[in-house]
Simulated scan of single mutants.
Amino acid sequence: MPPVWHDASPSITHQLVKAGLVWTKIRHAYMVDATVIGFTGTARHPKSLAVQLPDGRIALSQQLTTALASVVAPRLVP
């Protein structure tokens, strides 16, 4: 039986069904409030944000989408 690709819904990753087995890619994301303490790129075009997490650790965000960067940029101080 050849592999069959199908969409269960637009928000679910494609699943490969072959010989009764199903592979699914799952991502976990945890949202927390954090303080922005810096950024990469320029203040007009930030690429990602450096944030301080509630437990004191410092982390770098994922790359910002163009839409999100345009919302964040006016709030950044160069």
Rank of each mutant, 00 (worst) to 15 (best):
M1C: 10
M1V: 14
P2I: 01
P3L: 06
P3H: 07
W5P: 00
H6D: 06
H6W: 04
H6V: 12
A8L: 13
A8M: 08
S9E: 03
P10K: 01
P10V: 01
P10H: 00
I12R: 09
H14N: 14
Q15W: 08
L16F: 10
L16S: 13
V17W: 13
V17I: 14
K18V: 15
A19S: 15
A19N: 15
A19K: 12
L21Q: 12
T24M: 10
T24Q: 08
K25D: 14
K25A: 14
K25N: 14
R27K: 08
R27F: 08
H28K: 13
H28L: 13
H28A: 13
A29K: 11
Y30W: 12
Y30K: 13
M31K: 13
V32K: 09
V32G: 05
D33M: 10
D33W: 11
D33Y: 08
A34L: 04
I37K: 14
G38Q: 05
F39D: 02
G41Q: 05
T42A: 05
T42C: 02
T42E: 02
T42I: 04
H45R: 14
H45C: 06
H45N: 09
P46A: 00
K47Q: 11
S48G: 09
S48P: 10
L49I: 00
L49P: 01
Q52N: 10
Q52C: 13
Q52Y: 05
Q52H: 08
L53M: 15
L53T: 05
L53P: 08
P54V: 10
P54C: 06
D55Q: 11
G56M: 00
G56N: 01
R57D: 06
R57F: 04
R57I: 02
I58W: 01
I58L: 02
I58A: 04
A59E: 11
A59C: 06
A59L: 12
Q63D: 14
Q63G: 14
L64Y: 03
T65P: 09
T65W: 11
T65G: 15
T66P: 00
A67N: 06
L68Q: 11
A69T: 04
A69E: 01
S70G: 04
S70Q: 07
V71H: 07
V71F: 03
V72K: 00
A73V: 07
A73L: 05
A73T: 02
P74M: 00
P74G: 01
R75M: 00
R75A: 02
L76A: 01
P78D: 07
